[in-house]
Design a protein around this nucleic acid. Sequence first.
DNA 1: TTGAAAGCGGTACCAG
DNA 2: CTGGTACCGCTTTCAA
Lengths: 345, 345
Amino acid sequence: MNEARRPTIKDVAQHAGVSVGTVSHVLNETINVSAELRQRVEAATRALGYEQNMLAHALRRQRAPVVGLSMPHVASAYLAALIDLFEDIAAGRGYQVMQVLTRRDPEIELRRVRELLRHRVAGLLLVPTLDPRRTLDLIHESRTPAVLVDRPADDPRFDQVTFDNRRVMHQLATELIRLGHRRILFVVQSQMLIISRQRIEALRAAAAQIRRPVKIAILEIGDDAASYADRLLQVMQRPAHPTAVIVSNSTIAALTLSALQTMAGAYPDRISLVSFEEPEWAELISPRLSVIRQPIRDIARQAWQLLLRRMQGDPIPVEHLELHATVMLRESVRKPPPRGRDAGP
Amino acid sequence: MNEARRPTIKDVAQHAGVSVGTVSHVLNETINVSAELRQRVEAATRALGYEQNMLAHALRRQRAPVVGLSMPHVASAYLAALIDLFEDIAAGRGYQVMQVLTRRDPEIELRRVRELLRHRVAGLLLVPTLDPRRTLDLIHESRTPAVLVDRPADDPRFDQVTFDNRRVMHQLATELIRLGHRRILFVVQSQMLIISRQRIEALRAAAAQIRRPVKIAILEIGDDAASYADRLLQVMQRPAHPTAVIVSNSTIAALTLSALQTMAGAYPDRISLVSFEEPEWAELISPRLSVIRQPIRDIARQAWQLLLRRMQGDPIPVEHLELHATVMLRESVRKPPPRGRDAGP
DNA sequence: TTGAAAGCGGTACCAG
DNA sequence: CTGGTACCGCTTTCAA
């Protein structure tokens, strides 16, 4: 039973009447091969349907043309977009993406990244968990190039690309306050996240900056998403309810929108809404949803750029990039109703 | 400059005072090794911080413990969930996931899958494009086990796991008609998709099944998502507007919901809504959104099961599984207003 | 410029 | 059950 074995570089060499070294060189463009031989080799690869074995290639080269991508999950529009961009860039550069999910658990992160390292990935793109220390130690020990993305871990051993959470929240809050909002509600998934903490901090700082008192309320969704709408409405139906709501991601935005729309006349007239993540439908609904536009394309590009330089062995110093996010105020944000009128019709 | 080289299996063998063969056997549990030697080996791997080189492993074994995952994109909740499930199952079985995105383009699909094949993935999970023929030929030629997921390609050479689009749409339509709906609007992204065609077909079939005339309208979003809300409202404001709207995915559901809610008193009293994809917020909004619950967990599990069997070389005949989706009618669906009243105030 | 040959780090066969 | 060793397919040095 002579099953058509996959052709190897030897078969190609034989077919083309050259040595395997020559074939390898035309395959990888390692050195200049005469036009004639190159043609013969290319003809042979086509004739035989030869496909380079990247395992052997990588074993010999001591690294696979593969980057590992580690992130908490894929459910958010933001992370999905990140995957999309990374995949696209990688494909263009001849790299494959090996992806693992940490499910926000540092232990899982450690185990999964270890697997990636076993596969001798050339580099690592990491959206770290809350406590990535052991994982980072492991990576550092293995001398594998890595770039931290989105969640700041502030490790001096690794490049990092994030965006200015604090700054953009400060900007947003300042803008809302300028419009006249004095009671602002910020809805977060979890207060534990570094990102949430940074944003809350910036929100409070912005509020403290003006003379008039601005009240900041935080609503944490936590594990009980089902009761969120009720909890929100409860808050919004109080006499001195918030006049502006900031939500931290697209899912919460959808829920909030739906809840607010059940309160006749409330949204967007009496209550403004801004989302920190940009849902794909933000500009498609009416009134158009105000959002923070995260520089996600730039984050992906820069992260890749840094990683590429490390993979090429550039001895550049560690960089911590912080990109700018943009406040996009649209019709979902208005001036609050005149003071004193909030309480009743 | 003697940079601490990564320890190899030889180092471990030497450190443990055994042969490399023995080390390999305890690593892979290939044969039974005496407890004492196993302990010595394990101690040595720990002492040296040894990490098995999967490239060498895979090269020798002629296949990497890696499955390739090819899908059109990652933007939909459905596909994201699939990735999530596959990653989880794979991790549990000691496999890594190498992921490529086809962006709905058969050419890209072909190129990207070819890359996967070069990496000698042990198996392939494929959410195919509209025309995957050349890709499937390539895969078949390479004798790589593969399972088609979600989009039916009906290729007799490959296992396939889908769900019964036609059946569930038929069921849904029948139910809506039973409730009294006589004008149903189905909103799709593109009529080109096999899935869309199947659903439309089933919808029409269900409508044709009863004596009373049922009007079916199709609204295609196409590339111009921005104008969708307007187009929808235009349809819904006609005198004999549809009383039930079925949308084909979560994004469209969000848009539709938002648009309908701008028509005072329309939703859900005069207009019912059902989504073919289940957004995470479906049960969190009020009224709760009716959805088709796709058996996504089962799809992932079954696809993996089939793939695993093929990867183990089981000579089972090709299977085409069609799993059942479930109609989940909730408060977003009501009886339509009494006949004759639609047109008036 | 081209060819020969030595490994990359494992696995698995074979002999003991 | 254990150890020695050929070899997986490719890259790369070295000599011609």
